[in-house]
Design a protein around this nucleic acid. Structure first.
Lengths: 238, 238
DNA sequence: CATGACAAGGCGTCTAGACCACCCGTAGAG
DNA sequence: CTCTACGGGTGGTCTAGACGCCTTGTCATG
């Protein structure tokens, strides 16, 4: 009974929620959570307060209620379309991601880039072209365009390895993105950079990434199809 | 056993929730919802009951609470990775989807298909190969494998246009799928079927679709890259 | 041994209040 | 005229109960 009273700012339902979350994190699916009445006793709060805490965990898919039986750790929901950076993506595949900047400069937005970034043609954008390597072999060529207004002094600072990290540091980590995926054959120039034969199949990914409601990045990536498979998880309506 | 059907138990929080939903559906983002105290008056229920109703709508993203101001219609959330069938996909692009069956028969599952469907090698599967047309021009070749145990008599019934509809009729509409996307050049046979030159770029989509926890379909689709662009929406963690 | 009645404990629903922090429009003060 | 203080309305949190239905385990009975 001593834990909650110490901090004045502590909300009881948050205290209960986080207590249960800590119990439940790492537990196997199907393991029972404390019963509501038990939590009422332990925290000395009303049952509605406990229910508010549990409701939050249930609605975020961590717990599952079974009337008449109890509350249990839910089977982890299948993920859907998680947004990852190249670096994270390669890490997940157990590969080492590296980059080499081919070009990084201020340019004027062309019509396509301007529309995708929600700015007007001719506005300043940052054009960053990189070779992307995985385990020391070429994986993709990436052309990224960033809204310069949102990223003052970006070109002056040291170029980070991960664009997502740099955006996150400015509170602009993309929260939503739309990819258009198609295929084509490698041009002579692309083939040279990617160290494949001209005409080899490439996977082209055009991305438009938003942070909240603000478009922050548009990019075109050309992946070597012999090394890269895009994984996409799909679900139905919420 | 008591007959419950006679008394369709009207849950008050459901009544309030659906009332508010009906008010809110079709309203513009930012429009105010009734205040909690107003609903308390209108329905003659306790405020906690009203809050339970509103909480449900808030957590499904329909409403947005603004402390001190009120509750308002939320901006529709950006969708993420919605699972669609070929037919639905083409409809969304404003094209007419048609199909032609090339092959439909019972086979024994090979090792790859068996693993993807969660059955043992040699079990019976339905192999359905189709040409897919959009606006009367070839769009893709699809090889689908279905778990025969889940679909008794499937080959005897008339082949439906939409596989998803057929699955839905048996309560097996896929709820989750995983696509592996890559690119390759068309073989001579593929080129002939798709009416493109041999070596033309193709977008290859290998799908594994589950209904609940049961794998129901695995498929390999080869799209004409000159006609087809795959759109993928990505979000961050739940 | 099999079966059914019973009780305990679980979540689901609901009440009738309470106080708080916050936002905003407005009336009064300067 | 501007600025401030206040009051009414909003959602946020919380209480201390109540009854209902469901599941499960126990235990007495046939």
């Amino acid at each position: 009974m001593d834990d909650v009273a110490a901090t004045p700012r502590s909300l009881k339902h948050v205290a209960v929620r986080e207590y249960v979350r800590s119990l439940v994190e790492g537990a196997d699916a199907g393991a029972p959570a404390p019963s509501e009445r038990e939590l009422v006793q332990r925290f000395g709060v009303a049952r509605m307060t406990v229910r508010q805490a549990m409701d939050a965990l249930v609605s975020e898919g961590l717990l599952e209620r079974m009337p008449g039986r109890g509350t249990f750790v839910a089977r982890p929901r299948r993920r859907v379309g998680r947004l990852t950076s190249f670096t994270e993506d390669m890490e997940r595949r157990g590969m080492l991601a590296e980059s080499q900047t081919l070009l990084a400069r201020r340019e004027q937005a062309g019509p396509g880039v301007a529309k995708a970034l929600g700015i007007t043609q001719g506005d300043a954008v940052i054009h960053w072209k990189r070779m992307r390597y995985a385990d020391n072999a070429p994986m993709c060529i990436e052309d990224a365009y960033l809204n310069e207004v949102l990223l003052p002094g970006f070109l002056q600072s040291a170029m980070p390895t991960s664009l997502f990290d740099a955006l996150a540091a400015r509170g602009l980590r993309p929260t939503w993105a739309e990819d258009a995926v198609t295929a084509d054959r490698a041009s002579v120039e692309e083939a040279g950079l990617l160290q494949v034969a001209a005409g080899s199949p490439l996977l082209l990914v055009a991305r438009r990434a938003l942070a909240g409601e603000k478009p922050v990045e548009v990019s075109r990536s050309a992946y070597r199809a012999d090394r890269f498979t895009l994984w996409v998880q799909l679900g139905e309506e919420t």
